[in-house]
Structure formats: C-alpha cells, structure tokens
C-alpha cells in the first residue's frame, strides 16, 4: 500500500474552551478524492484548514507526504519560511472564492507564480492563461472578478490554485455560495481534476458529488471523525446512527 498523501493523527483543536476537533485520525490516499461531510459546525472546515495550517491544531500530528506541517517537532512551531514552502504545494479553494478584486482573472492566477514561485511575468502569464483555459475561461482572462459570475469566479480560484502545481488540493464547500445553476460547471472542473489523479480533500454538502466522485467519504460530527468509508458504505449502508440521521435530514430537506 502506498504511503498517505496526508496523515492526520490524534489531532485536537480548541477555540478557547470549545473542543472543535477531538482526536481526529484520517488518512488521505494519494491520487484519490476524499469528501468530508457532516452537519454544520461539526468541524469540517476546521479540519481542512488545519491541513495547510491556516488553523493551528493544538496537539496531534498532520503529515503531508510524511512531513509534519506547522510544527518542527510536536510542540515547537515551524518557521514561517518552512511553512510557506509547504503551503506552496497545497492548493486551497474557499467557499467565498476569495479572488483579489483589484486584479484581473489572469493577474489573480499569475500573482502567486510571480511572487511565490519567482517566475518572470511573461512566463507566469503564459501559465496563467493555460490554467484559465483548462477551467474553461480562456475568454475571461482580462475580466476583473466583479465582472464574472460566481461559477466563473470559483473556476478562477481553482485555476489560481492549480497553476501553482500543487500535490494536494483542499476545497471548502466550493459550490455552497453558488446559484444552483452554476454548481455544475465548478463540479465538472473538479471532476476533471480528480480524473487526472489530483489528491483532493473536499468539504461538501453536495452528496451527489460525494457519492459519485469520492473514493472515500469521512463523516464528522461534533468535532469527531465518526466514520471513514467508501461512498457506498456511507450512503447505502451507514452503520452509525448519526450518519443515518444526517442523511435522513438531508433527504428530507432536498425532497419536495
């Protein structure tokens, strides 16, 4: 068996007295799609954000390709420079897109290539154009975010991440802020990425996506990782009562 792309061991996270992640264990296999599902407030975003250390975990370990992130050794913080180096190879896509509004689509994508990877402007723009073409936005490169639909903005955000050539992509509810008719275009880009063998961790409320694209699904509740299983196992034969409840609520809300 191949080593994990991300190995999460006994991770705990507190917000003050609030215990947000409780001894979470999870292995993310390389080249596969892992979906994180669970009720609101269960800690999905928190866990995802611990993986690139946007959120600091308090104890336990998170290893990216074997290397501990955020800490030099358990308890001793990693230097900013080292952390930045590790983050370069981890792409992240946010619910709110978080594009830089003062830059065009192409500039948004080229920015990291220039300022972080140190590419020349010309080279960066060529690569930005490639990445934008890949997400189907060849004709929107000179647009500012304010002149794009939510779906287009999110695809720019994905292009911005993949242009950095990450080994791992994190998605935090990438389609939750989108009008329903725009969800498909973003999911399609993600499916393409998955089919190319990108390691992906996706927090999502799109159960269809989780059921059809994920290789494994992790269910969280109240800061605990309740179960990790195949989509089949989670959606069609959930052993845990909490998963059954969650799915029942989900189906009730989405049926009419």
């Amino acid at each position: 068996m191949q080593a994990s792309a991300v190995e999460i061991r006994k991770v705990n996270k507190y917000y003050g007295p609030f215990h947000a992640l409780k001894d979470v264990d999870l292995s993310i296999p390389p080249g596969k799609v892992t979906c994180l599902i669970g009720p609101s407030g269960s800690g999905k975003s928190t866990l995802l954000r611990c993986i690139n250390f946007l959120e600091e975990y308090d104890s336990g370990e998170i290893r990216i390709d074997g290397q501990l992130i955020g800490y030099e050794t358990p308890g001793r913080k990693m230097s900013g420079r080292k952390l930045r180096e590790m983050r370069r190879s981890i792409g992240m896509v946010f619910q709110q897109f978080n594009l830089w509004p003062h830059m065009t689509a192409k500039e948004n994508v080229a920015e990291g290539l220039i300022r972080v990877r140190g590419l020349s402007k010309a080279e960066a723009e060529t690569r930005a154009a490639e990445a934008l073409t890949k997400v189907g936005l060849a004709d929107k490169m000179e647009n500012h975010p304010s002149r794009m639909s939510g779906g287009q903005q999110q695809r720019v955000a994905i292009a911005r991440a993949i242009a950095m050539e990450p080994r791992l992509m994190l998605f935090d509810e990438p389609t939750s802020a989108l009008d329903p008719e725009l969800v498909g275009e973003v999911l399609n880009v993600m499916k393409t990425l998955a089919s190319e063998g990108m390691t992906m961790v996706v927090v999502t409320h799109e159960m269809g996506f989780a059921a059809h694209v994920a290789d494994q699904v992790a269910f969280m509740e109240k800061g605990e990782l309740v179960a990790v299983d195949s989509p089949q196992g989670i959606f069609h034969a959930p052993k845990d009562q909490r998963i059954q409840n969650f799915l029942r609520t989900y189906h009730e809300r989405n049926s009419f």
Binding site: L54, N98, L99, P101, H102, M164
Partner: peptide, 29 residues
Amino acid sequence: PHGQIEAARAIGMAEPTIVRRILLPLGLV
C-alpha cells in the same frame, strides 16, 4: 476581507508581499 488575505497565505505568499500586493491596495481604496 480576511479570506483574501488567507488566500494569499494559502499559496505560500510571505507577509510583506501580502501587505504590498493585497492589504495596501485594497485597504487604501
């Protein structure tokens, strides 16, 4: 928006660069 700063951190941008390229232009506006 904090998310725009985080997006820069997430790709490994250094803090002085974030100030110069994102915080200042947007904050000044």
